[in-house]
Structures are given as C-alpha cells and as structure tokens.
C-alpha cells in the first residue's frame, strides 16, 4: 500500500544523513566542490549501469521533455553549494532548521497549487498541525 512509500521516503532521509556525514569528512581532505563533483560523477556511473540493465522507461524522453523538467540537477547543485557556503558561517543546526522550514512551506504551496507537475493536494488542517509539530521538534533537537 501507500505505507511502503512513506518508509521509502524515511529511508531516503536516512541515506541523506549518512551521505552528508561521510562527505563532510571527504570534503575536508579533497575539497567541498570536489566532493560534490565526486558524488555526481560516481553516481552517474552507478545509476547509468543500473539504468542500462534494468531501466524500463525511456531515456530518449529526455530530449522531448519540456525543458523545465530537466532542471532537477541544476537545483540540486545550487542547494548543495548554498549549504556549503552557509554551514560554516551560521552553524549546522540553524542551517538545517531554515532548510527544513523552507522545504515544508515550499512543498505545501507547490502541492496546493499543483505546480511543477505535482499532483494537486489542498492544504488541510492535518498538514498545518504536522508543520507546527515539526517546528517544535526542530527546536527540541537543535
């Protein structure tokens, strides 16, 4: 059921944390932009091989797709660069809090409006309660 997709998203978050912690170390030895580059370079090879053998979709669609749907890589790189610049100056805790708040507000607006190809899901009371709880949790954790 749908439940499994919540677990997948949780797993995605766990991966993100482990990735961040390890790249923090790698960044100290080879440089920060260089670590990001390594991530995307090695990742391209890994996912390239997997797609080659198991891909059921059509990579050719990339060339026909509306161009704005190709901006994912650009946005991800800008996000990473912003974090690299701000963490040493404002601290990880504060940086995380503002990233997460930006993420929650933006995703609710995107979903409410059905922007960027997202299915339209109206903001409801449950979601507002959930964001309130998240803000409390953030201040307890950091």
């Amino acid at each position: 059921m749908k439940f499994i997709y919540y677990l997948l998203a949780l797993l995605a978050g766990i991966s993100l944390s482990i990735e961040g912690a390890i790249y923090g170390e790698l960044g100290n030895s080879i440089g920060k932009l260089e670590s990001s580059f390594y991530n995307f370079f090695a990742g391209t090879i890994i996912i390239g091989i997997i797609t080659l053998f198991f891909g059921k979709g059509s990579l050719g669609y990339t060339f026909k797709a509306p161009k704005w749907t190709l901006l994912g890589g650009l946005l991800g790189s800008i996000y990473l660069t912003i974090l690299i610049i701000s963490i040493p100056l404002v601290g990880v805790g504060l940086a995380m809090i503002s990233v997460i708040i930006g993420q929650m507000v933006a995703s609710m607006i995107i979903e409410h409006k059905g922007w960027l190809g997202s299915p339209r899901i109206a903001i409801n009371k449950d979601k507002l309660i959930a964001s309130g709880l998240m803000v409390i949790a953030l201040f307890l954790i950091f």
Binding site: I47, I50, T51, F54, G55, K56, G57, S58, L59, Y61, T62, A65, W68, T69, L70, L71, G72, L75, G76, I78, Y79, I82, L83, S86, S98, V99, I100, I101, G102, Q103, M104, V105, A106, S107, I110, W115, L116, G117, S118
Partner: peptide
C-alpha cells in the same frame, strides 16, 4: 535552499512519471 530542494523533488517526480524513475 530548502525551497529549491522541494522544487527538485517535484520536478524529478514529474519527469520520472514519464521517463521512468531510474532514468
């Protein structure tokens, strides 16, 4: 940065629906 990350997820999700998740 957080806003961009959300935008990325939506865009990639939409693109993945058409081209495939791996792709």
């Amino acid at each position: 940065g957080g806003v961009l990350l959300s935008a990325q997820s939506s865009i990639n999700g939409a693109f993945g629906q058409k081209a495939g998740a791996l792709e």
